[in-house]
């Protein structure tokens, strides 16, 4: 697992992202304007997605007071499958998990493989991208993300 985020050279506005969370409430990325948002696309059957999930929770715990939010978008699975998976992750995710059951976000966000993660700045623009698994609680990643929120 690596720990480098790639700056997006010409930041553009993030595509729409509106899905239900585990409580079946609608979550809209636009409602997080003013915060730095880590948008992660994943699935329970994807080995690097599983490996990075714990590090994402540690990042969340370390940065939740620094204007940072995490939205993890599950691709193609149902609530029961994801719920069962959560018990196997240490630490188990407490950040919002969203459900893209038809995988429609993959095209909109130009995702070609899982996991893929984007960092959206506080003005709603794509700031960084990471293709493949990362150690999200690595100091280099934490520093890059928190710097966006300041």
């Amino acid at each position: 697992m690596t720990h480098k985020l790639t700056p997006i050279r010409t930041p553009s506005v993030a595509p729409d992202l509106i899905f239900h969370n585990m409580d079946e409430e609608k979550v809209d990325l636009k409602d997080y304007r003013g915060k730095v948002v880590v948008v992660n696309f994943w699935a329970t059957w994807c080995p690097p997605c599983r490996r990075e999930m714990g590090s994402m929770e540690r990042l969340y715990q370390a940065t939740r007071d620094s204007n940072v939010e995490i939205l993890a978008v599950n691709i193609g699975e149902d609530l029961d499958t994801v719920f069962s998976f959560l018990g196997t992750v240490e630490p188990s995710p407490t950040f919002p998990l969203l459900f893209d059951t038809d995988a429609v976000s993959m095209k909109q966000w130009k995702v070609k493989g899982l996991p893929t993660t984007y960092i959206v700045d506080s003005e709603g623009r794509l700031a960084y991208r990471a293709i493949g698994g990362r150690e999200f609680d690595h100091p280099a990643i934490r520093k890059a993300i928190t710097a966006l929120g300041q």
């Binding site: 690596t2 720990h3 480098k4 790639t6 699935a43 059957w45 994807c46 691709i75 193609g76 699975e77 038809d102 995988a103 993959m106 070609k112 493989g113 899982l114 991208r129 990471a130 293709i131 493949g132 698994g133 990362r134």
Partner: peptide, 20 residues
């Protein structure tokens, strides 16, 4: 959907430093 996204990507771009 699981089958499609479990496959190695038909096309991709990797930045240096660990995209994979």
């Amino acid at each position: 959907i699981a089958f499609r996204w479990a496959q190695f990507p038909p096309e991709q771009e990797y930045e240096p430093g660990g995209d994979w």
